[in-house]
Amino acid sequence: MGNIGAGNATTALSQLLGDRLVRMTAPAVAILDIPEVGAWVGEPHLPVVAAYVQVTGGIEGHAVLLLAEASAQAILQEMLGAWGGDRPGLLASGAIPLGERTVSDLEASALMELGNVVITSYLNALGELTGLVAIPSVPSVAADMLEAVLNSILAEVGWSDAGVLAIRTHLQGEGAAVEGQLLFVPAEGHLSRLIQAMGMVGEARS
């Protein structure tokens, strides 16, 4: 399930990068306590750029695209390269730091678009598989250390004490430094709903 979703997301990312090959690892699933999530995802102090989307509809949950800072820089260059030196609207928003500088409004909007397209492609596959609709919110973009980014997202989510189920996939671009992760956390009770829906789809097809 996570595999096909990530496959779709990988294809979308590849197309955004001008058809460069993007590989993914098989998804890993884990049930974690909140303090464990950061370490499970990666090195806590790694600088990352994250796009976060809340998912509603038949499948509810939280989806995050995490990119290593250098990857985000490389992807931005690819997406905005077509504009060359003549980039209209290049005003420093000051809101999102990236390395030594802050991203421009145009770059921030490119990151939002990237998060939207990659995460929604993932959700499209989940929807296709389950026959349920997964509606994404407008993405929010943040850049910080991995731990800080995850903590602020986790604060939005509001877990129970039962821990959190997370599905994780690594994305790796060919050649260039494109490296990221997709994280999907189904809302409580929605994992069984996903599995059940897929079972029903399977039966209907047999």
């Binding site: 397209v117 929604t120 492609s121 959700l123 499209n124 929807g127 296709e128 997964a134 994404p136």
Partner: peptide, 9 residues
């Protein structure tokens, strides 16, 4: 022109 490609949508 949307990323949302799910059939019901």
């Amino acid at each position: 022109c949307s990323a949302m490609g799910q059939k019901p949508m």
